[in-house]
């Protein structure tokens, strides 16, 4: 596979390390009343989509960027690649 890195252009997927569902960026609030349940769901339950999947890849053999890649899990077609940091900032994750 080839991942079109937003800063570095097309790169072979073997330069990257895969993490999984981009929902892992949405870490729950540790002080919520149901934090234990939220953390359980956050870490263990996955949509595991057959189709468009937003997922995290890390450019370990490259610039160490974490990327959010939108890839079809049935065809492997990649339709979007963004810097995870931009996504996280835009979507306003908690500090």
């Amino acid at each position: 596979m080839i991942i079109n890195h937003p800063l570095l252009g097309p790169r072979d997927a073997s330069e990257f390390v895969y993490l999984g569902d981009a929902a892992l960026m949405k870490r729950p609030d540790w002080q919520a009343d149901d934090a234990a349940q939220q953390f359980y769901e956050y870490l263990y339950l996955r949509d595991n989509i057959a189709g468009q999947h937003r997922e995290l890849w890390y450019h370990e053999q490259g610039d160490r960027s974490w990327l959010v890649v939108t890839r079809n899990t049935e065809t492997h077609e990649i339709t979007a690649v963004e810097l995870a940091r931009d996504v996280a900032t835009r979507e306003g994750h908690a500090v």
Binding site: Y58, R64, W66, A84, R85, A88, H93, V95
Partner: peptide
């Protein structure tokens, strides 16, 4: 790096 870029940017 995951924590830095994805959790606490």
């Amino acid at each position: 790096e995951f924590a830095r870029q994805c959790l606490w940017p």
